[in-house]
């Protein structure tokens, strides 16, 4: 029964993290964006600096009518948000937070598992784009697919570089074999991974698939209420997952002073810093055009990641 209890506890912990961390990122985004633009951001909900704004938003979303357009493919339209959201929940469970098994569940091929499952989420956007029976949604869906295809590859290659360095695909294994100089050694790979991840999440400056000035809100144009909220939740859960993964793969996860006792804090701290950078980039840069987006992936990120793989391989063989 002890085992069952452990499992239940982990499940609850993962679910709570899945629901709370994206909200934290979202609220931080509200405030950071506001201050970077010389504004205050939400100030009323919850009293102190509008901390409950996203909770209020959630309540509002739940009360809104769920409109399914008459021309839409009803079933697929309604299913799409779930398909977009669930992969991130699955990924969250294998990300190690601290040493000594402080992880939802260690999976041997963890890195590969993460990359494979994250790729499934795009199906949600594609389904939404097609099923909405809306030109703008369809265009958004197409752009999403093209973007995923362009950026999944550099992500895979950069992740492969880390796997080479560590000699394992297990995420806790990768963190355990980390040394501080890896960050420099894998710097190019880390940058490529983070950038490609941003693009996969369709975060600015890579938000062409949801470019509001061109195609309203891309694949999510027709969504209202709770289903729309789930798409948003998926985006922020994606930020958490991406930052967590970058931390684990390139920044040494729980490594830091007193890692034995407060290792989990280091992981969370590094993840938070990365999430801040995600927001910061959103405020600072304009959106890339669609062809620039494609060109950037194929002519910049992929060559860099190939160079990184060569570098990793040579260094590894020489030092071993």
């Amino acid at each position: 029964m002890n085992d069952t209890l452990h499992v239940v506890l982990r499940l609850v912990a993962v679910l709570v993290a899945f629901l709370v961390l994206p909200l934290l990122v979202g609220q931080t985004e509200h405030k950071v964006m506001a201050h970077m633009q010389g504004r205050l951001g939400p100030m009323y909900a919850g009293g102190f600096h509008g901390w409950a704004q996203l909770v209020a938003d959630g309540v509002k979303f739940a009360q809104k009518e769920d409109v399914v357009p008459a021309d839409a493919d009803r079933r697929i339209f309604q299913l799409a948000p779930a398909v977009a959201l669930l992969p991130y929940l699955l990924v969250l469970i294998v990300i190690p937070v601290g040493p000594h098994g402080f992880v939802g569940e260690a999976v041997d091929a963890g890195l590969f598992f993460v990359l494979a499952v994250m790729g499934v989420g795009v199906l949600g956007s594609l389904m939404a784009g097609w099923a909405s029976a809306n030109k703008f949604s369809l265009l958004g869906g197409l752009r999403t697919a093209a973007q995923l295809m362009a950026y999944e590859l550099p992500m895979l290659l950069a992740a492969a570089s880390v796997a080479m360095a560590a000699g394992t695909l297990s995420l806790p294994g990768i963190v355990e074999s980390y040394h501080w100089w890896w960050t420099l050694w894998q710097l190019m790979g880390g940058l490529v991974f983070f950038t490609a991840g941003l693009a996969e999440l369709q975060r600015p400056p890579f938000d062409m698939p949801v470019a509001d000035s061109e195609i309203i809100f891309g694949a999510y144009t027709e969504y209202t209420g709770l289903r729309f909220a789930l798409f948003l939740l998926a985006e922020y859960a994606g930020i958490v997952v991406l930052c967590g993964l970058t931390t684990v793969l390139f920044l040494g996860g729980w490594h830091g002073p007193w890692a034995g006792s407060v290792g989990w804090l280091w992981t969370l701290l590094k993840t938070a810093v990365l999430a801040f950078i995600v927001i910061w980039l959103r405020v600072s840069y304009p959106r890339l055009r669609e062809d620039q987006l494609m060109k950037f992936a194929w002519t910049v990120l992929i060559p860099i990641s190939l160079v990184q793989i060569a570098l990793t391989g040579v260094v590894k063989v020489v030092t071993s």
């Binding site: 091929a109 590969f112 990359l115 790729g119 499934v120 199906l123 097609w130």
Partner: peptide, 24 residues
């Protein structure tokens, strides 16, 4: 395990996306 995730990555993540992409 490895083949299973290759299956997801290649077939679900890219071949079907390619297929849907082509259909659209």
């Amino acid at each position: 395990e490895f083949i299973a995730w290759v299956q997801v990555l290649i077939y679900v993540g890219s071949v079907v996306v390619l297929l849907l992409f082509g259909l659209m």
